[in-house]
Amino acid sequence: MIAWVHERTGLDRVWKALFERHVPEARGPAAWLYTLGSASLFVFLVQALTGALLAMSYAPTPDHAYDSVRYITGQVALGGFIRGLHHWGASFMVVLAVLHMLRVYFMGAYKYPREITWMTGVCLLLLVMGFSFTGDLLPWDQKAYWATAVGTNIAGQTPVIGGVVSRVLKGGSEMGAATLTRFYAFHVLVLPALLAMVVLVHLFLVVWHGISELPERRLQDGDPQGP
């Protein structure tokens, strides 16, 4: 039975390529720094799951957004807890992604042959920022409204194209219903699709090149990386 599935899906080979691949041994506490990427991926999955649950009871219009969030927090079973997970997950996401990036940066792990892996990683960080910016507005409370007002004003200051950018973000010259639906569409449709694609490329490259080894000091005789 299992062999029958394997023959038709190649799952056994996928498992071999993903999980039985060898990883250079990193000794000491520094080895734990290599978990930050997986941790970011995990928090992303938490965000996707809690986000989908929240979307089931959320109404993206100025008339109902605030009340639906109050409803989620007070009425829906475990609603407050799920909203708390999504809220704190956003902060965790930023922190873990940045820590992961710092690990790669200070270890010089972006060097040959992993340059493009790094670039996709920077794109992922920008997407995470986009998630945070668009998600902030959704509760439609005072904090949400005014933080977004300032954010869109900042975007509006871009030389030459600022006016257009600000209007595209707000869906008009003033913040209102169009802004909320637009941010919601970005938050639950556009950004997740982009993020999923870039994550797949990023993961593929990580597996393709192999996880980088711990960097070593240059040896005295000039040999760059030792024997």
Binding site: V46, F81, W88, Q142, K143
Partner: peptide, 22 residues
Amino acid sequence: ILAALCWLAYFAGAGLEDLADP
């Protein structure tokens, strides 16, 4: 991380201020 998230979500939660007032 999951434990920390659950702890924060349960005890600190996510705030909600007054309705947006333009």
